[in-house]
Structures are given as C-alpha cells and as structure tokens.
C-alpha cells in the first residue's frame, strides 16, 4: 500500500511544469524515505532529479518500495483536473500494481474526485552522480536567473558563465552582436530571497546551452532562490529547493571547444 497526501496539492502542478520540456515519461520511486525521480532528457544532455521527502507530506505510507512508470503528459492532464487549493492524495494498491490513483479534495470536503491512471513499464536508466565539492556555488533569486537566461537567449544559443568572488558574469554572442550581464554579490540585503551569495574555492568559466537552462527555469515557481553549482569541466547543477520537502535539481553537461 502506498499513500501520500499533500495539502498543498498545487505543488504537483509546479513540479510537472518544471519537467514538461525535458521529460515525457519517468519513473517515480517510492520508499519510506519519500518519492524521488531521476531521468535524463532524450538527448542525454541533461538530467532531472526530484526529491520529495516523506516527512514533507501531510500523511505518508509506503509499505514496500514501489517504482511507478508514469506518462507525464497523462499525469499533467489529470493533475489539471485539480484546483489549486485542493488536497491531493496519490495512492497505489499492491493488488492493483498497474495503476495509480489521484484523489482531489476541495478544502471544505464538498467535492472529492478520483482519477485512476494507467502506469507504464519503463526501462529506467539510473545515473550514479558522484559527490562533488564544487568550485563555486552561487545562490541568487530564481526570477533573476530566469530573466538572465531569457535575455541571453535573445543573443545566442550558448551562455558562458564566469564566476569570480566579485560576482557572476553571463555572456552570449551571436549574429546580432554580444551581451554581458554581470551580477555582483549582495553587500547586504533585508530579504534572504533577494540575496546573491557566492561561495568560491576557485574562479570558474563554463559554457552551457541556453535552450536547457531556459527549460530548467520552468521550476522558478517552486522556490524564491536558485543555486548554481559549478566546477571546471563537470556538469552544472541548478537546484530549486522545495520548502520543507526536498528539491528539484537539474544537471547539464558543459559545452566544450571542438
């Protein structure tokens, strides 16, 4: 028996929005620790890693480990049938292993819906992600990062991110010319969410495909802040924390000079 109840049901809408450009199907792994998902996009350039810890749910029961192969397009259709203030419960029954049920309850309990969705048999490839001490970790407002990625993609297909202790510089070039955006580390901020904080061991310069960074910024509604972890010649980690529950992380391989 698996049952996970989320009072803040709209969180699932945000999570699906945050994966829609990268994944069409994925396996949700459920265990006593929580629900997780790890999947690469079809071109093997990026990886999505979601963690929702069991203690972040309003009720959680998972008697035995369960892997649910889910068509995310179908799940999105079903989750769209919920209202933003609905309580969502995800249920899977051991006697009926080919389906998952989503139950939506209005806050006053006057409307209760349930949708049963067919599960898929997916060949899941799991990647082992090594523990890495990153040379640079930048925390910045998620909306600012979204804006930078959007603006840079007006100029070119790639962005070069150069991070020093003074700040982070995003540069792009293309047929129309070049663009640079430099964001300094915050001197002092009243609100933690508005801060730009740089933790640095050594300066790093890396180039990434803007197409993917823009896909990652679909997660902006999940968190006020985003963190970018970088080391020379290894994939970038873009992390959006999901308050009291876990995270949505994206890994993107850097571009290299041919």
């Amino acid at each position: 028996m698996f049952e996970a109840r989320l009072v803040q049901g709209s969180l699932l809408k945000k999570i699906l929005e945050a994966t829609k450009d990268l994944l069409t199907e994925a396996t949700f792994d459920c265990s006593s620790t929580g629900m997780s998902l790890q999947a690469m996009d079809s071109s093997h350039v990026s990886l999505v890693s979601l963690m929702l810890r069991s203690d972040g749910f309003d009720a959680y029961r998972c008697d035995r480990n369960l892997s649910m192969g889910i068509n995310l397009t179908s799940m999105t259709k079903i989750i769209k049938c919920s209202s933003n203030d609905d309580v969502v419960t995800i249920k899977a029954d051991d006697n009926n292993p080919d389906t998952v049920t989503f139950m939506f309850e209005s806050p006053n309990q006057e409307k209760v819906s349930d949708f049963e969705m067919k599960l898929m048999d997916l060949d899941t490839e799991h990647l082992g992600i090594p523990e890495t001490d990153y040379s640079v970790v930048v925390k910045m407002p998620a909306q600012e990062f979204q804006r930078v990625c959007r603006d840079m993609s007006q100029i070119g297909e790639s962005v070069t991110i150069c991070c020093t202790k003074d700040g982070i510089r995003f540069s792009a070039s293309g047929d129309l010319g070049t663009g640079n955006i430099k964001i300094a580390q915050s001197a002092n901020v009243d609100k933690e969410e508005e801060a730009v904080v740089i933790e640095m061991q050594e300066a790093v310069t890396l180039t990434f495909a803007l197409r993917y960074l823009n896909f990652f910024t679909r997660a902006t509604s999940l968190s006020g802040q985003v963190s970018l972890s970088m080391s020379p010649e290894v994939p970038l980690v873009v992390e959006y924390k999901i308050a009291d529950m876990g995270y949505m992380r994206y890994y993107l391989a850097p571009k290299i000079e041919d």
């Binding site: 690469m40 093997h44 350039v45 990026s46 990886l47 490839e125 799991h126 990647l127 082992g128 992600i129 090594p130 790639s158 180039t207 495909a209 290894v234 994939p235 890994y251 993107l252 391989a253 850097p254 571009k255 290299i256 000079e257 041919d258």
Partner: peptide
Amino acid sequence: TPVQNDLQEFFALV
C-alpha cells in the same frame, strides 16, 4: 563553435 557534452560521459549508468 563549442560542442555539447553528453551527460553520460560524466555520470556512469548504475
């Protein structure tokens, strides 16, 4: 022009 790396070159399948 820079070339896109494959993620699997960094993270092995487990």
